[in-house]
Amino acid sequence: MNDLSLHIIDIIQNSLSAGASLIKLTVEESTVEDSLVIEIEDNGKGMTQEQVSRLDDPFFTSRTTRRVGMGIPLFRQSAQQSGGDLIVSSSPGLGTKVRATFINSHLDRPPLGDVANSLILMVSANPDIDFFFRYSFNGNEYTFDTVEVKDVLEGLPLNDPSVIRMLTGMVDANISDLRGEL
């Protein structure tokens, strides 16, 4: 994984496999507190305490079921090498929350990458799933909610390439703005 936005796709894919209909992605960056937090929360089928503890071992699962694999361990590694950690909390029937924390300025923290691209690709590839995205930078935030977006688009398909390009541009512009990038 080259950057953190790819891990985000990976974890969202887990949520989709778990049958989620609502996926919430939060990215909180703070240069003041020198922290970066990425959180993915879903309302999928969830895991038992035992299943959660097994996530620690990337090679526990047999290849045929492919229920869990390298996704969480790789994400955890990225967090831990950056002075942070990754916590999975889950309850069967309710959903799962994956929270990764990083020291923002840590030399080994992978770049965040193109979060707007990752998000909108997931939104467009799964038009029936609702996504909620919140990005905050030093306390200022931007939110993106597919329920609102679908309402504005009034039936225009989310998987149309022109819509994808426009939504990606919209999210990207807001993220850049908050970060103070030109």
């Binding site: 504005v152 225009l156 398909p157 998987n159 149309d160 022109s162 819509v163 541009g169 919209m170 512009a173």
Partner: peptide
């Protein structure tokens, strides 16, 4: 123009609809 808000998106809807190739088949 840069689209930043849902209002901007609403304004772009017509031109989006115009160039759309999936809509008629959706």
């Amino acid at each position: 123009n840069k689209i930043k808000s849902l209002d901007d998106l609403r304004k772009m809807k017509q031109s989006l609809e115009h160039g759309m190739n999936i809509r008629e088949k959706s």
